[in-house]
Amino acid sequence: MGAWEFYAVVLLVYLGTNLLSVWGLNLQFGVSGVANLAYIVMVAAGAYTYGVLTLGPDTGNGGFQHYVIGLSLPFPLAVVAAATVGAVVGVLVGLTGLKRLRQDYQAMAMLVVSIMAATVVSADTGLLNGNEGLSLIPNPFADLDPELGRWAYVGVVVVACAAGWIVLRRLTTGPMGRTLRAMRDDEYAAAAIGKDIVVLRLMVQAVGGAFAGLSGALLAAFIGGWSPSAWAYTETLALLTAVIVGGMGSDRGASVGTLVVTILILQGVQFLPQIPSHPGLTEDLGWIVLGSLVILFIFLRPQGLLPERRPSYAETADPGMAEVDAGRRDG
């Protein structure tokens, strides 16, 4: 397998897993207005769940890493469990928004949740091997020929993305999509016509969390390791950049945003010249570019590259109202 083929596989897997998590975040943030700055915690929950369920007991390999559970479960079971745990963690984190706090207040609380979770997991070595993280996480195709195994894995990611897209579109289009957007645009109006805001928010947290957990599990199985440095609170911003650049509330926009962020930014900086005295400099530049992109887009093009389409309704029978409708659409 050539270097470029390997690179293509890595890029495709990253792209697929990023798509899943950005879709979930866009469902929460873009479509429903839940400012979940702890999103990466749900990705991590999925990755760790997959890790501890597929690894054997932690006495194996000379007991060099310490973690809980260790069931050696097969890949499909562990992935389903990871998505479930992601959903549960999403609901737990979402409970802080149950009191109907202001959106920015919720965002701040979730940011703190994210920083805290990483601090605790890093410090406690008995739980998930602390700062070192889990390694030797099993790949489902380890027994196959390496080349075939890698492409088989790409196949699994593609299937997961296709399934994810179908679930996502059921929620973001049609009646459910309109309900969620109504909640985002005017919470009180949505409540007044009988929508249960708290239940809807928790549902969105659960579904988005499941997307995150699935994404984390697929990523951890591919890389073979997972540690706190992979889910610093800044990682949520990378996913958010994809949502904001692509277009908040637009599924296609979020997908385009993922493409831009994954390929142009995260991979693009790899092509910058390395400066030996500053080994991490290109990565630092990547973060500076991502942060600046968010600020620039919110300033100059808040609707993103592919804006959310306003829903269109059938013409009203009353000609006067039809005129108002037309005016509203043009405006």
Partner: peptide, 19 residues
């Protein structure tokens, strides 16, 4: 600009400054 977009701008700015 909505309040949570402003919080996100401040998060983004803090990451830019930090890096």
């Amino acid at each position: 600009t909505r309040s949570f977009a402003i919080v996100i701008v401040t998060v983004a700015a803090s990451i830019v400054l930090q890096y």
